[in-house]
Computed example of a mutant assay.
Amino acid sequence: MVLESYFMRILAVTTLRNEAPYIVEWVAHMRAIGVTDLLVYTNDCDDGTDALLAVLAKQGVLHHIVQQVPKGTSPQWQALKAAWKHPLRKSCDWAVACDVDEFINVHLGEGSLHDLIAAVPDQTDAIAMPWRLFGNAGIDRFEDRPITEQFQQAIPADAMFPIAATFFKTVFKPAGPFNGFGVHRPKQKDAAKHPRPYWIAYDMEQNATLLGQMPQRMSLIGMARGVRSVECNHYSLRSAQSFLMKHARGLPNRSSKPIDLAYWVQRNFNTEHNPSIDRSRRARIAEMQRLLALKDVAQAHQAGVEHHQNRIAHILGQPEGYELYCDILMAAEGRILPDHKAREMFQLYQKLKHRE
């Protein structure tokens, strides 16, 4: 795939901390599906993430900004605010905020964002990409192999519970009625002064008006569903040993939320085999090979892998890490609830949210 041949500018923004082993594959995937510009923010990295990103930035692959994050501030939200003001955002046609464990999975054409964008009406401002939660596929050990090939067991597309299974990410036109990046969806301008955005979800020809009417809505539950033309594969767990590193790192946007056994159980769904992301595999692998052939990239990647291997061994040598690992290995996989029970739990969730 010759990326330079595309005239459309598509920007991806991400925030990273200690994700060195996973960066090359994710960057390769984003470029393979048509992303032309990558804006990467990091903070407090000690695993070689910054070193690898510096090499990739030097080669012109991406733009890397190291953040200094004040105590009590969300690194992710600080990055998203800065990204909105960045010249790359001002010059792109489409944009998406996406974590390194989230892989956009287009089910049209060759799996490119260009195939997706070509399929929606011209007036489209935003495209909702439903999350698909992927489990650990029974893999315990951390391995230096592509995430998209190791983990191909997922929750069913129609799952209504846990609530996270109904969340989505968004690719959108920054020139539309928006005034900022959000974790799941862009921030909308005041509807009293600006038109509501034209949203697409599921059916590529139907306006998902509910998303425009409810600017804070992050869930697709209750909406008319159709064939998914795009999803966002969410590999939030990876292997059991990789999860130990995530437990030690914490979340980028909510440092108070624990990454614990409950988090694991609520996301470890291996209900059905889903290799659909293989549609873009050839382009992704070719781009990975190209990146690894660049000066110093393979060495920086390997240094990150070795750091994670050593860090995991250290964590397993500590009582807390050992106990969490034991609990993970003995825990049952996430269980899909029957529809009636899932709806009941969602109603309880809505009541709780209304009290907050």
Rank of each mutant, 00 (worst) to 15 (best):
L237W: 04
H194Y: 10
R238M: 10
S242L: 02
P252N: 15
E272T: 15
R196I: 08
M288H: 06
H234W: 02
G212P: 02
R228K: 12
S280F: 02
M245S: 08
S236R: 00
S255E: 14
Y198I: 06
G250D: 08
V171G: 00
F161W: 15
Y198F: 10
K189H: 01
A175T: 14
R254Q: 15
D203F: 05
I259D: 00
L244S: 01
Q213S: 14
P162L: 03
L210S: 12
H194N: 08
L211M: 13
M245R: 05
L251T: 09
N274I: 14
S239I: 05
V230I: 11
V230P: 00
A283V: 06
I277F: 05
T170E: 01
S229A: 15
L220M: 10
N179R: 12
Q188L: 11
A208K: 00
T209W: 14
A283W: 01
S219V: 10
H184N: 11
N268F: 09
D278F: 09
I285V: 14
Y198G: 00
N179Q: 14
M204W: 04
Y263I: 06
L220G: 02
Y202S: 07
M245K: 05
R225T: 13
A248S: 07
R228G: 02
I163F: 14
M223V: 06
Y263R: 00
K189A: 05
Q216N: 15
S280A: 15
K246V: 10
G176P: 01
A165E: 02
M204H: 08
S276K: 11
N253L: 08
P252R: 12
Q206D: 07
G226K: 09
P177F: 03
S219H: 11
S256R: 14
P197K: 01
F167L: 11
W264T: 00
G226A: 11
Q216V: 13
R196W: 00
S236D: 01
N270W: 06
N253P: 00
P215F: 10
Q266H: 02
A248L: 08
L261R: 08
L261H: 09
G180N: 04
M160E: 14
F168M: 04
E231S: 08
D190C: 09
A175V: 10
F161L: 10
I221V: 12
S276A: 15
S239P: 03
P252G: 15
R279F: 02
K169P: 00
S239E: 07
T271P: 13
N233H: 13
P252V: 12
R228F: 06
F181T: 07
M245W: 04
S242N: 09
H247D: 01
M204Q: 09
A175Q: 13
H273Q: 14
T166W: 02
